[in-house]
Design a protein around this nucleic acid. Structure first.
Lengths: 246, 246
DNA sequence: GAGTGGTCTAGACCACGAT
DNA sequence: TCGTGGTCTAGACCACTCT
């Protein structure tokens, strides 16, 4: 009985959903009924329901009631960091190029900029234990205060590069993940000498709050040095449900 | 002024975080101070803060205050469905095998079962426009009521297969994503006639609430028919913040 | 009109942190 | 001791749905 009432209510209902007693679409007892059942005030009952709502278990329709949500079976939490994946960590990087260029038509298009807007290009190689494991290219529309100092770039992930000019909270990120065979240049960079090693390719795009692109990048991983890991959207380990740290 | 007070409070603070006025680690005004500032009751202020907490913006330390959280820059929302990815949808499947077998040592290990526990094997080919696009294998420890009827299996995704015996809410899912070259058997299945087409491989494991494996599967996608898409963890489109449907 | 959820108040008591 | 957040109450008024 150490649990606060609102969590007891939430856990009880969650249990009923998990064991199948309540199925998606089913109505939950009305808030007043729950008040009586738990001898609690309505605010307390509502707080319990709010926990379930924020975890995606239920939704409510004003004037009708609370209902069990259809679980979102195709949604996962993916952990991605170009320097550290499920099977490998980068311990050294090499800057191949840091430059300010005028964009070609492809860049103009994907960064939604004018042709006279300058763009920073950063090309890096990532190493693990002396072996090259990934070839990384980033493009950032140039703004004052952009990172063009080697130290700032060398070990920075993409979101970190734009953090100086943007709050990381406001950034919208997109990944597209696919596989392909390396071209000759990439094979040279990644020390690939046969035709049997594919690449894992991760395209990354960053947008600001207004939806304007603030950066795009492509990372070509040696296939043998890249595994990505994802898990259920709501894992109890890492959710913000109670709002307290740890 | 149509917004309820608690959302106004939440939006105001969110804005301060997004424009950099409040940085990670910074303290937020005390709840009593916010009560005065917004001429609102403490419950209303706390509700506003609860919104921010559940969205990952802030956390609280009892006795000290509310603080801006460090944004989780490596976490994304991944959408994965073996039948439908960013560039392709499966329109036909072919059942290669549905069988009940005794597990080999690898299966015993990864499904954490005893050697006499029977296992269902399901092997399928996925097609798009008549072309084979993926080769899919699933293993499920056999329980009564398991799907061994063709109709139930043919177009089912992995979570759907176990839904009969488990609430989908209670299932813990894991994905491991990597790339490799096809072996001869897989090349035959996927109609690959050269050595230049890699596979996207997705290993999927499902666990019940107690953490016991209830299924594992591997899907081998033709590299040219598989792109995966992921985006920021908190996209405003699909969050459960208000708990109401649409 | 009766029941439902959505918002909000003005208190209360508690455990905890800083001093 | 005082300020902080965490929990909780017993009301209130509103908009909505159902019948």
């Amino acid at each position: 009985m150490r649990l606060p009432i609102y969590l007891r209510i939430a856990e009880d209902i969650k249990e009923k959903i998990n064991n199948g007693e309540l199925k998606p679409g089913d109505a939950i007892c009305s808030e007043n009924a729950l008040c009586k059942a738990y001898k609690a005030s309505r605010m307390t009952v509502r707080r319990g329901l709010a926990v379930l709502a924020s975890e995606g278990y239920i939704y409510s329709i004003p004037g009708k009631g609370n209902f069990v949500r259809e679980p979102d079976i195709n949604t996962y939490t993916l952990y991605y960091n170009e320097m550290k994946n499920f099977v490998n960590s980068v311990d050294k990087t090499k800057l191949l190029e840091v430059n300010i260029i005028l964009p070609n038509s492809k860049l103009i298009n994907s960064l939604q900029i004018t042709s006279n807007r300058k763009v920073i290009v950063i090309r890096r190689l990532f190493f693990t234990g002396g072996e090259p494991v990934a070839y990384d290219i980033k493009y950032l529309p140039y703004c004052k205060g952009m990172p063009i100092i080697e130290k700032e770039i060398r070990y920075a992930t993409f979101p970190e590069m734009v953090a100086k000019n943007n709050s990381l909270f406001a950034i919208k990120k997109e990944l597209i993940i696919y596989t392909e065979m390396p071209d000759e240049e990439t094979k040279k960079y990644l020390n690939i000498n046969n035709n049997e090693l594919p690449l894992m390719v991760v395209e990354q795009k960053l947008y600001n709050k207004e939806g304007k692109p603030i950066g795009m990048g492509i990372t070509y991983f040696r296939g043998d040095y890249c595994k990505l890991y994802a898990e259920s959207y709501f894992s109890d380990k890492k959710s913000y449900k109670n709002g307290t740290e740890n």
